[in-house]
Design a protein around this nucleic acid. Structure first.
Lengths: 340, 340
DNA sequence: ATGAAAGCGCTAACAC
DNA sequence: GTGTTAGCGCTTTCAT
């Protein structure tokens, strides 16, 4: 049988279509007896309002596009999960676009999304170029995850590496460490600069002094990190804890410590930074910082929903602190902090 | 500026809206000069046809819902990737629903999807119950992945365990094995029955005889498999190759072989079945069968697209053979077969 | 080859 | 509290 329309329901309930619409969308505005008649007819005819007609009328489809570089990647999956959940909780659907790290497909998506039924777009960017958000018509709400954009109407939510570094440093401080070293990546990069900012900022508010001898570049390689750790270990007052800029570099630092006959975390406590999948299996397991992927997804969704409600609000930049992932290498024994 | 509509374009191009529509959707039906005028206006006004209006008029939204139990799972991600790609190639969007293995949410999705702008639904089912497809209004095309349904209008695409088992048996046969054992799971289950069918079917067309001594239940446990392998090894004519019903059970079989002082694959070649993530790291790495997730996604999309084209076609069941994953435990040395 | 107009199913402004 | 009706933006029949 043909799907029932509002007209059919109106006829059956012997009221006008307007009343049916009201009974459904604003029940209090119709008399109870009428409402019951309508609901009865709705039930009997298995009436489902046509979402397309509604969308046309209201100029609002209740869907958000989500463009990701690679669903296969588990961090990405977490982002999607977070965004999807938040959107769903607010009655929005998630329209997925997977570019497979292909910039041309990303561009293509930006093009076709104009002809797609979405109220807004969340971009998750991969390692590649910044997505061509400029292509987007300005009446589409947009939010960027982990990328910046100068566009005034494009919100962004990012993982806050500076804050993360502060967190890590403070964590060691709380455990009694006063001499905390830092093996950086390439110091020219903004990633390293941000971390350095977090590291330095920490000292400003503590009685511990910043010591430039404790900051050495590991040059983003395992070997570089090995050398850097050796250098730290050669200091007359060697640090009792060292933060290493990436989990991979930590591998070099670990072997340098072993090489010197020291043990982790007893003689020296360490942490990595980015929670690579294998860091859990290092010996000892590596304390590190984890991208809050689920939260990134969730907050980006919230952000775009807010912009939809208030299109003219000013650009919003959200920075999410990274989650600290406490494992054995930092010597903390009080159990694990919870992470999502 | 307000988004341009077809009316605006018509005015600018000094033609009727009908002509604009035609110029866009059926260019050959308008005079070249007119077409150019129209296209010019379209360009200038940055006109994008409103997809919602189009959808209302054509009663077709060009989107398919994809309900999955858990995006976080990598097999699921592959399914999504396959489906999304195929849908995209045919101009369809993918509306994602992630139930998080929660049956209540799955039910909820079945409910709201009636009020969602999709032309059809693909269900990927997890370990839980069969999704409540009966709830779906029959004018929504539906396709099930890895589950059966009696409903006449619901297509299904499944991984073909029987065919997979045949593949595996044939693989050993090709390598010269005549005595091929099979350690099954619980023999009451349909999964085991299907595999057994594949195993037996193989012998029907070969000069090798089926030998019931070679089929022993490992009872789905590591210990059971250990015992089963011991039994096979104790046969006067012990098999030279053994297929084990699950990768996990293979662990028991492996230790039984070691325990008997035999080595894999030199003395006895083995394979597992389901490509568990760790099977690659067994010693030796385990030859096994892999679910063709990407293909499952791709074919389910194709299936639903076909049904949309031809709503009255008869129910279609697609069985996809599992991909063989050749590693060291089977003794095959000619390189790896390709897998997606 | 082109235009006028109906209508997809719904909501909301207006009238009563 | 309820009905009438215009109109969201598009495609398509029917005329011309």
């Amino acid at each position: 049988m043909r799907k029932a329309t509002i007209k059919d329901v109106a006829k059956k309930a012997e009221v006008s279509v307007a009343t049916v619409s009201r009974a459904l969308n604003d029940p209090d505005s119709v008399k109870e007896s009428t409402r019951e008649k309508v609901m009865d007819a709705v039930e009997k005819m298995e009436y489902d309002p046509n979402p397309v007609a509604k969308a046309l009328r209201l100029n609002k489809v209740n869907s958000i596009g989500l463009i990701v570089p690679n669903i296969t990647n588990t961090s990405m999956a977490e982002i999607i999960r977070g965004a999807h959940e938040e959107l769903g909780d607010h009655g929005y659907n998630t329209v997925l676009f997977n570019s497979g790290e292909d910039f041309r497909r990303e561009e293509h998506f930006c093009e076709i999304i104009q002809n797609t039924m979405v109220d807004g777009v969340i971009f998750v960017t991969g390692t590649g170029a910044t997505p061509p958000v400029e292509m987007l018509s300005s009446d589409l709400a947009a939010c960027l995850i982990n990328r910046k954009s100068e566009l005034e109407y494009v919100d962004q939510v990012m993982a806050d590496e500076e804050e993360g570094m502060k967190l890590l440093t403070y964590h060691f401080y709380r455990m009694g460490h006063k001499k905390i070293g830092f093996i950086t990546g390439n110091q020219q990069t903004s990633a390293t600069k941000n971390k350095l900012k977090g590291y330095k900022n920490f000292f400003e508010n503590k009685e511990v002094d910043f010591n430039s001898e404790y900051v050495i570049s590991g040059n983003w390689t395992i070997e570089g990190s090995f050398l850097a750790m050796k250098e730290l270990l050669g200091l007359k007052e060697k640090p009792s804890a060292v933060i290493i800029g990436t989990d991979t570099m930590a591998l070099g630092a670990i072997s340098a410590i072993r090489d010197s006959g020291l043990s982790i975390p007893e003689d020296i406590a360490i942490s990595g930074f980015d929670n690579s999948p294998s860091s859990e299996y290092y010996t000892p397991s590596l304390t590190t910082l984890k991208y809050p992927n689920y939260k990134l997804g969730k907050l980006s969704a919230r952000s775009i929903l807010n912009r939809l409600k208030n299109p003219d609000r000013e650009k919003k930049n959200i920075n999410i602190p990274l989650d600290i992932m406490i494992r054995k290498s930092c010597g903390y024994r009080m159990g694990f902090e919870k992470n999502d």
